[in-house]
Design a protein around this nucleic acid. Sequence first.
DNA 1: TTGTTTGTTCAGCATGAGCCGAACAAACAG
DNA 2: CTGTTTGTTCGGCTCATGCTGAACAAACAA
Lengths: 173, 173
Amino acid sequence: MTSDETAVVTEDVIESIERSAEVYGLSRSAGRVYGVLYFADGPLSIPELVEETGYAKSTISTVTRKLTRIGMIHRRSSQGGGRRVRFAPESDLWFVVQDVFRQYVDREMELTQRTFERALDDLEDLDGDRSDRRREQIADLAETYEQFQTLLTMAMNHSPEELIAAIEQSDLD
Amino acid sequence: MTSDETAVVTEDVIESIERSAEVYGLSRSAGRVYGVLYFADGPLSIPELVEETGYAKSTISTVTRKLTRIGMIHRRSSQGGGRRVRFAPESDLWFVVQDVFRQYVDREMELTQRTFERALDDLEDLDGDRSDRRREQIADLAETYEQFQTLLTMAMNHSPEELIAAIEQSDLD
DNA sequence: TTGTTTGTTCAGCATGAGCCGAACAAACAG
DNA sequence: CTGTTTGTTCGGCTCATGCTGAACAAACAA
């Protein structure tokens, strides 16, 4: 731990990353680990992360596994041989968001739409004002949901630059 | 509680709404309350919601307050006079999303950007390789974040139809 | 071999959120 | 006024989650 005038400034930014991590459903420790790795001079091992973050070894082990699974950090394993594993941050966060979306949200939305479709099928056979109203209500819900789904799927297949350009372009009309 | 052949089908849809509510950071009970109101024949009072959902009165009171605050349901108060308050669902969910975003996420992101700017200012005065590297790293982060911010802000100022059309249009190039 | 370092797993503790029932306040009906 | 209905607030319970320390396994060094 060498003397470093930039440490204080960096600390503020890492705390900000911590808070953002929490907003997006990760733990504070996960944000801290990512932040430390982001500013590190190279990949860090678990003991080094323990030293830098102050968290227990077990916490670092769990957190690094989770962050690796969602692609926010990467294992630079077997570098220089040995058992020692090192972690490096993924700097393209948009890529991470897209990947997480594809794994979780997308699946959930498809399941929901399937439920709507099945409900509409079941109502097909029924007569009466009530079932007519239900059909309409569920069809409305399904349409809104499908719109969200379409929008998010399209967003996940483009870069932020492309999306911003597309919307700006359409605003010129 | 009259006999209703559509109840079974509706139940599946409400459960689906419950799960979606959880995904977006609300409680299961909040999803249930919204679902019941969505399919109700008119605004419901707290005792009626207790009857329909099975939750305790205190839970309904808390949940309706929260849903009202974020605009997912509305108080149809003082209808027919008296103290009895009734709740109706907001059917335009995109509107709700936009509103919640403006209140919470937007504020959080602006705060984060302010932190980045302050950090860059502080680093201005320092010399040396390390502070040069820090400046670059933080500038990268800030740029990514600003891109997200821009994108989301733009999304919040358009309808889903407009957004989908804009992206589809740009895909034709 | 024996000792050291690295990494994982697991039981236990603390904290926070959701929900409940009870107590309370407010409005109305008789 | 007394009793009933509606709505809010609060203490307490339960469950999930983050974090820890300790025990364990695996690789290396002596």
